[in-house]
Design a protein around this nucleic acid. Structure first.
Length: 258
DNA sequence: ATGGTAGAGCATCTA
């Protein structure tokens, strides 16, 4: 089973690239972020033509998350579980896909560590922890894929010195991520490459960052141990960051043995 | 490398 995540930075602008990628990568499940589409505008039919069912939780202009699956989708839930205060933004959708409970998340960016948006980011992560807690037990097959806007470790950024004092690498953000891991979620991609650096998933459009290898690994696929123990392979598809009209993120996927 | 680019929508805001 191949589970993937991709921040597409506007699905309207990126649909041809996503269709192309589905055609050759053929993930079983794909979590999308930043669709920037209303639910009415989501291209379900285009994905159905490639064999994918889809669910979407979107906004007219910003954010927007979706799950595509060719192994079935059932019981979709938009946003946090009903016991939690609803989020004003469309940053989370969950569904059962082929026996796995999948969530697609778009964690707030945070902007700067002294901003209200940073506090919102930390509060959002705390709520995601509660959300995951209410989904089930760490022994259940749970996968959370998405743009976490957090680099788990210094090896996940091109130059740690450049990011001192910035969001994405701060101790509170990393602690929030570690609390998800404490519950029982494993960074499946890092598990496959414990010692390699330079494995980025995002490169700023500006200043030639992609070609200069100035990136960050902020797109993660977290899994409970029962799934993570089945990881056969994992990859960032950098080719999808090249060429005509790319997103600023590359798709990340993990392959699980049966 | 406090600039730079891309996408939203039409003046700026967000990343």
């Amino acid at each position: 089973m191949r589970i993937a995540t991709w921040n597409v930075n506007s699905l309207k602008a990126r649909l041809p690239r996503v269709e192309e990628w589905l055609g050759y990568a053929r993930p079983d499940v794909l979590c999308l972020q930043e669709t920037k589409l209303s639910d009415a505008a989501f291209p379900h039919m285009a994905f159905a033509a490639q064999g994918y069912e889809s669910v979407h939780h979107g906004d007219r202009q910003w954010n927007g998350v979706a799950i595509l699956s060719r192994v079935g989708i059932s019981d979709p839930v938009a946003g946090f579980v009903s016991s939690l205060e609803p989020d004003a933004d469309t940053r989370l959708i969950s569904a059962w896909c082929g026996g796995v409970h999948v969530s697609s998340v778009y964690v707030p960016n945070g902007r700067s560590v002294d901003s209200d948006h940073y506090e919102y980011k930390l509060a959002w992560m705390a709520k995601l922890r509660q959300h995951v807690d209410s989904l089930g037990k760490p022994g259940d097959p749970v996968a959370v894929g998405g743009d976490f806007n957090i680099a788990p470790a210094d090896t996940d950024v091109w130059d740690p010195a450049h990011f001192v004092g910035s969001t994405h690498v701060s101790e509170p953000e990393r602690r929030a991520l570690a609390e998800l891991e404490d519950w029982g979620l494993v960074d499946a991609f890092r598990g496959r490459y414990p010692d390699e650096d330079g494995l980025y998933s995002y490169w700023d459009y500006r200043a030639g960052d992609f070609h200069e290898h100035r990136g960050m690994r902020i797109d993660l696929i977290l899994m409970t141990a029962s799934l993570a123990s089945r990881v056969r392979w994992a990859l960032v598809d950098r080719n999808a960051r090249k060429g005509k009209l790319p997103s600023d993120h590359a798709p990340v996927f993990v392959d699980l043995d049966p």
